[in-house]
Design a protein around this nucleic acid. Structure first.
Lengths: 352, 352
DNA sequence: CTGAAAGCGCTAACAA
DNA sequence: TTGTTAGCGCTTTCAG
């Protein structure tokens, strides 16, 4: 455990000033001779510039923060892998936090990141605009991924992004005021859900249910739009995010509405719950009930029958978000919507 | 985007010196009157001590690093959740890196952490002792989780831990020299594998195969021990870590040895591959082949039939590792072995 | 009990 | 092109 060489050591050993060393190492101007000497000495001393000094001087920590609800959810694992891949190739550190889908924990983690002076953040938000206000106020560059914060009545954080997205989604944006700059990287939920619903319709299904989770407002909206009004409200149910509550929601749905013939699960945890609940109630997939799940995960193929899914590019979403947050210069990056794909396997059949 | 208050601001506003503010905020001695005043002012100014200044002063970044091979593997997701849970409750940041199981990337990430002066690290190692030497030399407190680095010929990093574990495993440790302090948090692979093999034996299976992945030396060793010699070497095959190579290994195994009647998969990715390969070759589970998988993951229950697994407490392992690394004072923490559990579901049947 | 002062390692003005 | 210098915000002696 020897102490690391500092810039001063290098400067002395090379017979130059510290500023010169700093310049050489960060690609500034220097005469070829000096540059070479400094580089040689630095290598010889195994000098690694300390991020500590640089960070303090620049009043900011490099790298980025990443906040997800739950790493046990394979989709967020994919997203994180994408972010990490981009960060690694840029040599930047990533500070990770898992919020458990809880706005309070999210707020705590935002506070922690602020304390660390991490000023770039990628987040799958759980809290509302109020939760995010401190980060925005502090001047953090934040990029939302997978979803947007729920709207709170008295704030309008994310309004710009929402307006953008509604436009992209083809919906007319509600008039918004004082738009705040919070771009996002999302999947094209609307197209994904629409395609799935049409597919089920084509198979003859009329009573189609939606099994949703927290933060899936866009998917729910897309579902409502796709099935057209009037929507049978009993067929739209929600879990709170945990596997247990997802199971409860699925089981309750199947029991209260035995007449439904198809269900769209808004995420892989919900899909898992649907499969489990159906089995428990002796409902055969796809004979008794057809199932489409949002998210393609490796086990979808292992299921019996293999699950028909709406695939979204989790890894790409993470990678893109990281690119955006790293490149974010002065101006706000634009939001991005990535395409989804309906992958037909064996969990949907004709209505009996 | 207002600038944050500094300790100096607080000091001035409270009419005291910065040292006093520092003391009060870090629980040092101060007269009740002063303390109260400082606290009030700090709250009023919404002062948050900057980690930047503290880090530089203390020449170390708080929190810890976490290195895993792949967040898309649910087991590592569980492990990471455990680490994050512990870190969050301690208010400490976690810098995450994904190595892809590649020693080079691992080495790069270690370098990055060193640059950040992160001096506590939890890792699921992919490289050998040589890869880990820089971290050890720099005085990092490292805790290995899930597995130990493979031994390289000319180094003996981790020797102490290995000796510990062999002892705990009930094996006689090979004589080692100059033990280095690298504790670990592991599952009791030996007992887990042994139980699984005995279970399969009890069902009448004699040709049992092991499908392994990188870093599963302890599991392989346990398998060899459990089946007893001579071990049919063709029945012990390996993937390289990717899903594709796991599939290739499984498929190859089934095709070259159609006489095998049971397989133990060393991890959930390998188990997934085995299920897929078996299906592709029209092998029925458990009619044609019985399957036990290491790792309990949510989808194990969804499989048809539900998979019998050796469950290891991934989340707990992460939590314990984080506790150890945070508590590590001067002396080296002791290694920990957590119990596994054989969860019998439907993927094993009597030999036909 | 409290304050003044000295840096931690680095970068960016500013001079030369 | 270079070197000198002034901090970034904090903790920690060391006096008082």
């Amino acid at each position: 455990m020897e102490k690391r060489a500092t810039i001063k050591d290098v400067a002395e050993a090379a017979g130059v000033g510290v500023a010169t060393v700093s310049r050489v190492l960060s690609g500034g101007s220097a005469s070829p001779a000096t540059r070479e000497r400094v580089l040689a000495v630095a290598a010889q001393l195994d000098y690694r510039p300390s991020a500590l000094g640089r960070n303090l001087r620049q009043r900011r920590t490099g790298g980025m923060g990443l906040l997800v609800p739950d790493l046990t959810d394979t989709f967020y694992g994919q997203l994180a892998e994408g972010v990490l891949a981009c960060a690694r190739s840029a040599g930047e550190p990533v500070v990770l936090g898992s919020t458990g889908g809880d706005p309070e924990q999210e707020a705590d983690l935002i506070g922690m990141l602020l304390e660390q002076s991490v000023d770039r953040l990628i987040a799958v938000p759980s809290g509302d605009a109020e939760t995010w206000a401190p980060a925005i106020r502090a001047g953090m560059t934040v990029i939302f991924a997978d979803r947007l914060p729920v709207l709170s009545s008295h704030e309008d954080v994310g309004a710009a992004a929402i307006a953008d997205l509604m436009a992209l989604d083809g919906l007319s944006p509600a008039p918004q005021t004082r738009p705040l700059d919070v771009p996002a990287v999302l999947a094209d939920d609307r197209a994904g859900i629409r395609t799935a619903v049409r597919y089920l319709r084509g198979l003859g299904h009329r009573r189609i249910a939606f099994l949703g989770g927290p933060g899936q407002d866009r998917r729910v909206a897309a579902f409502r739009e796709a099935v057209g009004s009037p929507v049978d409200e009993e067929l739209v149910v929600f879990g709170t995010g945990s596997r247990d509550s997802a199971y409860a929601a699925a089981s309750g749905l199947f029991q209260t509405r035995p007449d439904l013939s198809a269900v769209v699960a808004g995420g892989n945890v919900l899909g898992e719950a649907a499969v489990l609940a159906a089995r428990e109630l002796d409902l055969r997939v796809p004979r008794d009930v057809s199932l489409v799940m949002y998210d393609d995960v490796p086990w979808a193929e292992l299921c019996a029958p293999p699950l028909t899914v709406i695939a979204q590019p989790g890894r790409d979403m993470g990678y893109r978000a990281a690119e955006l947050v790293l490149r974010a210069g002065s101006r706000r990056p634009r939001s991005v919507i990535l395409p989804t794909e309906l992958i037909i396997r064996g969990s949907c059949g004709p209505r009996r």
